[in-house]
Amino acid sequence: MKYLFAILFSISIISATSMGKIESISNAAISSCSDAVTLFITLLGIMCFWSGLMNIASKSGLTQKISNLFKPIIKFLFPDIKGDKKASEAISMNMTANLLGLGNAVTPLGIAAMNELDRLNGHSTEASVSMKMLTVLNTASIQLIPTTVIALRLAKGSQSPFSIMPAVWVTSFLSVCAGIAVIKAAHCKDTVKSTNKKKRTASL
């Protein structure tokens, strides 16, 4: 992330200069800033609403019930939260919203889960494995019914707008698996390193 913006800005300027589009990127720079604020205000309402709703569900014990359903998955994907109740509840709600395709609710519930993981991580500046895992699950979300795509296909005159669903399931499942595998592999190296270190210090 550190280099990302520097790279994006330099690519933009180089290609805009070569294609004579300097003026349009200058306009884009200004209009995008205000677009971001507009988006933030929309997001603010949604965030407040879903956080409020989530709090009702959590106080009444509803989230507890849902998180019980996700227990095995959470245990596998987030071993380092050690079954923390609040964090697993927040993660389960985020997963539910992802599966149901509740586009607007996914982000607030994901951020709530992220804050719980941040608390477990002692507000460190280094992301915990669970935080990485949650983010990757959300960047490659599994949706049971991709409603936006289906609606757009129907609008463009598709004969079978739903026919893509099995292919979407297979694709998103495999892409999520690939993301999980990268994190698990990177983390696996860490644990090997730390056990090796322990062995070395023990042998000394």
């Binding site: 992330m1 990302l4 994901g110 951020i111 992220m114 804050n115 993981l117 941040d118 507000h123 460190s124 500046t125 280094e126 992301a127 935080m131 990485k132 949650l134 983010t135 990757v136 959300n138 960047t139 490659a140 495999l174 892409s175 999520v176 698996c177 690939a178 993301g179 999980i180 595998a181 990268v182 994190i183 990177a186």
Partner: peptide, 23 residues
């Protein structure tokens, strides 16, 4: 997700997410 927390070092998150996208 990360700006909601104090995290600066995201480690393998971006590579993992982009691997998922590419897959």
């Amino acid at each position: 997700y990360f700006s909601a927390t104090k995290v600066k070092k995201t480690g393998c998150t971006l590579p993992a997410a982009l691997t998922a996208d590419f897959t």
